[in-house]
Amino acid sequence: MGLREYIIRRAVYNVILLFFVITLNFIIFMAMPGDPIIMFIGRRMTKEQIERVKMLFGLEEPMHQRYIKYLRNMILWQFGISFYTSKPVAQEIMERLPNTLLLMGVSTVLSIVIGTFIGAYAAYKRGKFIDAFTVSSSLITFSLPTFWMGMMFILIFGKWAAVLLGHPLFPIAGTMSRPPPTGTLARILDLLWHMVLPVTTIFLFSYGQYALLMRSAVLENLTEDYIITAKAKGLSDKAILIKHALRNALLPLITQAAISFGFMISGAMITETVFTWRGLGTYILQAIQFNDYPRLQATFYIIALSVIVANFIADILYALVDPRIRYE
């Protein structure tokens, strides 16, 4: 099987997978206990008003009609109106997407780059103090709950700094000063300043997985025959590490990075909430709290879609960098 057939096969497989995911997305919400109409029911509403609201949101239609309408809407990227805000879900998602992509993009790239470097260095210095330190610190920051880390940052750089210095060292909430400074450069710097704590929180949580993955992959490669050959050729340790071991160790990293980028859309629900970051993470959390089905269906669908697409890209990259894959 050539590369083209391989890609076509993976694409068909992913389309089928996407259809199942969309269907599951519908079934899950229908099977959930409770009634979304509860959102609107209060001391104030009459029976007629309740019926009117049901009609407005299409909740009075039979299940199969709702499913067909749902499928069509998902394909056409029409996610309907939020039960909670009465605004178009697609518009709300687009409003929040840039913030999430910025936060998750920066922290994911930093985690991959720095994590990979640290992991490779730890493998290079295996058995030494730096190796032990890297492994243990990666495991510790990976194990700590992100909400706790976030709260500690707020405590140290916000509350304690304000007590000692009279003002917080880093912003504890939001994506901008309130009100923001004037001028484009000032606003960019202001945004970067606001990103420090949430990006650090996500970075500390996620860099460890890349570091550990890289360390084990490099260590595994360092025991391979071709490394012995390289040593026999008289290459330096550094050259062996960078030109041979590191390159081959990058393969598992591609999958891991692709999955990370796929989940980037969903945002960091906890970190966004702790730092009042107006992204998709907080949007999903709010939707869960208020049984906002259109929001949840849309976000789950987009997350599933982005993970499937990211995996598809990973498959292609894998096939490109590892010729064995396409012939499997």
Partner: peptide, 20 residues
């Protein structure tokens, strides 16, 4: 009147303590 939004009461109390 400047209204500042926080997503959790904890963040809001931290802001109160920091004088924000």
């Amino acid at each position: 009147l400047l209204i500042k939004i926080y997503y959790t009461p904890e963040a809001e109390w931290a802001a109160l303590e920091a004088g924000e």
